[in-house]
Structures are given as C-alpha cells and as structure tokens.
Design a protein around this nucleic acid. Structure first.
Length: 277
DNA sequence: TCGCAGGTGGTCG
DNA sequence: CGACCACCTGCG
C-alpha cells in the first residue's frame, strides 16, 4: 500500500532527514528514506512535488505522517517573513529550502538528544539503533528488515547501567535511566522548564526537545555549529550564548527554531562541501 | 597516541 | 553567576 501526496512545495527529503533533527531515517540506494516513527514503518520518496509514502494507508497519513512532516505549516510564508527581517539568512534559506521541522514523539526526542550530547552522528544513530533492538518493542518487518521502537520510560527506568552496557551509551546511560524514572513518576514534560529539569538535559538539549518534540517553534538550540554560523554571519563571539539568544528572539521571534535549522544546515553541510573548517 | 565530537553536571572563585 | 574540567566511546 502506498499513499501519494501531490503539489508539495518547500519540501526535500535530504534537507528534512539530514538537518540534524532526527536519527532514525535511513537513506536507501534509490534515494528514498525508510524509518519508523510513532509505531509505524514507512518509506518515503519525493520527486517533482510528489511525495510517495510506501507502507502507509490513507489513515496512517492523516493520523501520523501529515503532522509528523509538518505539512500543514506554510513554509513559503515563513521564509518570506524571515528574509524580510534579515538579509543575512537568505543564502541559508535557499540552501536548505526543503527543510521541515518534524513533529516527533516527545519521548523519542528526549532519548535521542540526551544521547546526542558530546557525540558523533554515526555513533548517535548506532546507540539509538542498539537501544531499540535490545530493549524496544518489535514494530514490524519491511522488505526483510526488522524495525523496533525505543524502550518506554518505564522500561528504561527498570534497567541498570550494566544491562545497558551493550548499547554503548557511555556516561549517558545513567542519564537515560534517571530520566526514565523521572518521566515515569512525574509524567511527560510539557514545557522548557520541565524538560530542563530532566537529568542529562541542559539548555541545548532542552531546546532541541522543545523544538522537535513539543513543536515549540521559538526554541533556538545553540550547539557548536550554531555558534560557528552566528560567528561567521553575524559576528558574535562563539562564547556569547546569551547574546545569540537575545538576537534570535529579537530577529526571528516565534520562528527562531525554523531559522536555526536553516542556519545549522547551511553551516554544517555547505561549509563541509566547500572544504572550509 | 591523543584530541575531539551536535553538552552536562559538579566544583570553584 | 561564569569559568573550568572530567566524562564513555570510536574514529582519524
């Protein structure tokens, strides 16, 4: 079963799945992406404005993928607003024109971004993969490959560091166990303060969780790449995080998170392509 | 070999 | 508060 969406603008799978917001979508040899989210497996391909979602019913699309891919938001309008307010961001927007902020599961965002701290992307993906296979639940098989969901907060809370050792989380294992306990006891966090209170979650990770898990579009995560791009394009000292936060709020307002994704993707990918540091 | 990577928590001043 | 520094792991 396939579900087809025509006439999509401001949409590009490479931009969406390679802009650092998610770690569970794998690019296939034919350029499509396969992944699992919210308990469903899907394979997506996109060409000339047409998105084909394989292994998805119309019901799946309406209940899951439509909102997951943030298709109800008008990114054309957002880009015009950002460009009008800021001449400097123009190139970044053009470079990542197809970016969309995925509306991911909150718990998945919590686990993913705790793991992401001080870590390389291939290893982040490996950790999430291991964690799902070892302790998650079986979601299904698609084209010969088994897919698993992440373990629940209760499941993580029940594990010891020794049991988690094969997942190779390093010192992040205890953060995940503790966070599992906190979420089990207090429920899922709903705002920045509650997210920040979780063990192993500082300002950067909290902003990622708010942006990608709670759809708080004003969140502006500042990591090393954003520090670099803020230095390069706007002349900030890389340690001046406070200054960057104030600037983002003033310049981008409620759309800070979307602006951040264009800037992040531009700095991380464009500069690499061009052999800059 | 050793530094470092999409940071955080703990400890000082 | 702001400035340091250790920290799992794997790769160059």
């Amino acid at each position: 079963m396939k579900y087809v969406v025509d006439g999509l603008k401001d949409f590009n799978l490479d931009h969406i799945f390679d802009c650092g917001q998610c770690f569970r979508w794998k690019k296939e040899e034919n350029g499509s992406y396969t992944g699992v989210a919210k308990g469903k497996i899907a394979n997506m391909s996109f060409e000339d404005g047409t998105l084909i979602i394989d292994n998805s019913t119309e019901k799946d699309f309406n209940e899951i993928w439509k909102s997951y891919l943030d298709l109800d938001r008008n990114y054309g309008e957002i880009k015009e607003f950002l460009k009008a307010n800021d001449q400097v961001i123009n190139d970044a927007i053009e470079y990542g024109q197809g970016i969309r902020i995925l509306q991911q599961d909150v718990w998945e965002a919590i686990v993913s971004f705790i793991i992401s701290q001080n870590n390389h992307i291939p290893r982040i993906k490996g950790c999430i993969d291991n964690l799902s296979k070892e302790f998650g639940s079986f979601v299904g098989n698609y084209k010969g490959v088994d897919y698993y969901s992440l373990p629940s907060p209760e499941k993580l809370a029940s594990l010891s560091e020794e049991e988690l050792a094969p997942v190779k989380l390093g010192y992040r294992a205890k953060y995940l166990i503790e966070t599992g306990k906190q979420v089990t006891e207090k429920g899922m966090p709903k705002n920045y303060e509650e997210v920040l209170a979780l063990t192993g979650v500082g300002p950067k990770v909290a902003n990622c969780i708010c942006l990608f898990g709670l759809a708080k579009m004003d969140s502006f995560p500042i990591d090393v790449w954003v520090k670099r791009v803020m230095n390069k394009l706007y002349g900030f000292e890389e340690k001046d995080v406070k200054g960057m936060e104030a600037f983002a709020k003033e310049r981008f307002g409620d759309l800070g998170g979307i602006a951040q994704q264009y800037l992040f993707y531009y700095m991380r990918n464009f500069s690499n392509e061009n052999g800059e540091k």
